[in-house]
Amino acid sequence: MAISIGCAGTVSPTARRRATDMRVQARTASARAAVAAFKALGGGWQDSGAERLASE
């Protein structure tokens, strides 16, 4: 997606929001892919003990 630049070289607020949204979506997709790869390789998170402490 192209970002429109005005005559004075400024980026419109709409274009800035779109660029920010695209960047956030890319970071989210990257994080999800990393978690999926980790799980596919047999990884998982260890219980931190918070649930055990909460039940005591």
Rank of each mutant, 00 (worst) to 15 (best):
M1Q: 00
R32K: 09
R52Y: 12
A33K: 10
L41R: 15
G44R: 05
A33E: 10
G6V: 00
A33S: 12
C7F: 11
A54V: 13
T10F: 12
G44M: 04
G43H: 05
W45P: 12
R27N: 11
A36H: 06
T20N: 06
G49A: 02
A19K: 03
A8N: 14
Q46G: 10
R16G: 07
A19V: 04
S12R: 04
M22R: 10
S12W: 01
R16D: 04
S30P: 07
Q46N: 12
D21V: 05
T14S: 13
G9C: 06
I3M: 07
L53H: 12
S12I: 01
T10C: 11
L53V: 14
T28D: 04
A26V: 04
S30Q: 15
F38H: 10
C7G: 02
S48Q: 09
R18A: 11
F38M: 09
S4H: 00
R16H: 01
T20E: 04
P13E: 06
F38I: 02
G6M: 01
R52M: 12
D47F: 05
S30Y: 12
A34N: 14
Q46W: 08
L53E: 15
G44P: 03
M1N: 00
A54W: 14
S4G: 00
V35P: 02
A19T: 01
S12G: 03
A50L: 13
A2W: 00
E56R: 13
G6Q: 12
L53M: 15
I5D: 03
T10S: 14
D21A: 09
A34Q: 14
D21L: 07
Q46H: 12
A36K: 03
T20L: 06
S4Q: 09
A8Q: 11
E56L: 11
A37H: 10
S4W: 00
E56N: 11
L41E: 15
A54P: 09
I5P: 03
E56C: 10
E56I: 13
Q25S: 07
D21E: 11
F38R: 01
A50S: 14
T20K: 07
K39S: 06
F38V: 03
A37G: 08
